Computed example of a mutant assay.
Amino acid sequence: MPAKSKSQQKAAGAALSAKRGDMNKGDLKGPSREMEKSMSEKELEDMASGKRKGKPDHKSGS
């Protein structure tokens, strides 16, 4: 499932980096910390990949 916003995509990228061991898991905050715990590496890869152009900065609440 691809990310619906730029911020979601960035959080998934940070969580993926921590899951792979490229960064310290303790450095994660907020949504990226929850994503790292609850999603598989494949799910994070799918969410973090793709183009950012045309995506909103943040997902709307509706």
Rank of each mutant, 00 (worst) to 15 (best):
M1K: 01
M1S: 08
P2W: 01
A3G: 04
A3Y: 01
A3I: 00
S5F: 00
S5W: 00
S7Q: 13
S7K: 12
Q8N: 10
Q9D: 00
Q9R: 04
K10W: 12
K10C: 09
K10P: 01
A11Q: 07
A12R: 05
A12H: 01
G13R: 05
G13A: 11
A14L: 13
A14D: 10
L16W: 01
L16G: 03
L16V: 00
L16A: 00
L16F: 02
S17Y: 03
S17P: 05
A18W: 02
A18Q: 03
A18N: 05
A18M: 05
A18I: 02
A18S: 11
K19H: 12
R20I: 06
R20E: 15
R20N: 15
G21C: 11
G21Y: 12
D22A: 01
M23E: 15
M23N: 10
N24S: 15
N24G: 13
N24P: 11
K25W: 02
K25M: 09
D27V: 07
D27A: 14
D27E: 10
L28N: 00
K29A: 08
K29F: 06
G30C: 09
G30T: 11
P31W: 12
P31V: 14
P31G: 12
P31K: 15
P31L: 14
S32L: 04
R33Q: 06
R33L: 14
R33P: 01
E34R: 04
M35V: 09
M35E: 00
M35H: 04
M35W: 03
K37S: 09
K37E: 05
K37F: 07
S38V: 12
S38N: 14
S38P: 02
M39A: 07
M39T: 07
M39L: 15
S40I: 05
S40D: 11
S40R: 06
S40G: 13
E41W: 05
E41S: 10
E41T: 08
E41Y: 05
E41D: 15
K42R: 10
E43I: 03
L44K: 01
L44A: 00
L44D: 02
L44H: 02
D46K: 06
D46Q: 10
D46H: 04
M47E: 02
M47N: 03
M47K: 09
M47P: 01
M47W: 03
A48L: 09
S49E: 04
K51M: 14
K51H: 10
K51I: 11
R52H: 11
R52V: 13
R52M: 15
R52F: 10
R52A: 15
R52Y: 12
K53T: 08
K53M: 07
K53Y: 08
G54D: 06
G54C: 08
G54M: 07
K55V: 01
K55I: 00
K55T: 05
P56G: 07
P56E: 02
P56N: 08
D57K: 09
D57W: 09
D57T: 11
H58P: 04
H58K: 15
H58T: 11
K59V: 03
K59N: 06
S60H: 15
G61P: 12
G61K: 14
G61A: 13
G61W: 15
G61N: 14
S62M: 11
S62Q: 09
S62W: 13
S62E: 12
